[in-house]
Write a protein that binds this DNA or RNA. Sequence first.
DNA 1: CGCGTTTGACCGGCGC
DNA 2: GCGCCGGTCAAACGCG
Length: 309
Amino acid sequence: MDDKDKVDDPLKSAAEFAATESSWSLGAESDNVYSFFGNTDRDSSILNEFGWNFPPSEAAGDKDVVGGSGGAGGFDRIDDDLAGNSSTTPSASATEVPATGKITDEPLSSSCSDDPPEKSTASGGSSASRPPSDTASKVKKKGQKRIRQPRFAFMTKSEVDHLEDGYRWRKYGQKAVKNSPFPRSYYRCTNTKCTVKKRVERSSEDPSIVITTYEGQHCHHTVGFPRGGLISHEAAFTTHQLTPLASQFYLPAGVQYPQEVPMSAPESRQIPGESAEARRLPETSQPANQLPTDEGLLGDIVPPGMRSR
DNA sequence: CGCGTTTGACCGGCGC
DNA sequence: GCGCCGGTCAAACGCG
């Protein structure tokens, strides 16, 4: 991961901005990783938009989303090794994403297609006898680079590594991270049809910061939280607070947004949140449709085409 | 017993 | 071509 260190400029500025302005900011990672900084209360809303929900109590409690200066360092590593870093030049990577490339052809319809691409069957033998066609994320047609789904990175100040986000995750791996004393944990959504994954690691610069990177898109609802703390997408999505949030986005001078949204979320991509089907509103689709022209927060980030999938 | 975590090994991409 | 490294697998293990 040598080339990753060069893509942090815009992110760094974003982080600094967030830290100084105490406001939300969105940054685009080198390839298809988006990073978020922001205040806690707003953060939960953002997560709601993408299908990630924080229990109100926890989200507002001991976990503060960080926009701190430490962020810059963290992001150097977050975006690493993205799929096809391939041809992106350091400068281009931050300002423009190969929107036409790999991601477009990918059947991003959702990470949870009818049949789990996953192994589930692959309970077979040892890795030596691993069927070459087990995981969709790994599978790629010959000559094609590995395709990854959009990823979103969150930096959160928390004492716990694994932040509660409303979904159930199963840890499937842990690796020591180079240049970091803290290991990186790999989680996968326990829903058999859901291939969403997330990585959790601590910033080597600021151990209090947890960097969570989501990859993929949930195709199911969040699990309920006890004590009436159920977090549903419907509820979240219909919440009025999402709309005004749209106007609360800020970006540092160096970062273009939302005009440059395509750089971080071209139509061909999908936000790792819920798809339209999952976030379909119970009886009326009004809330979503009532969103301003910018269609609310999500609209700022996600082109309509993606949201209506 | 079922589910989740741990952990060592393997695989594949990428840089040199 | 080789080695490094990130990501993943799956058996073993732990826990409720």
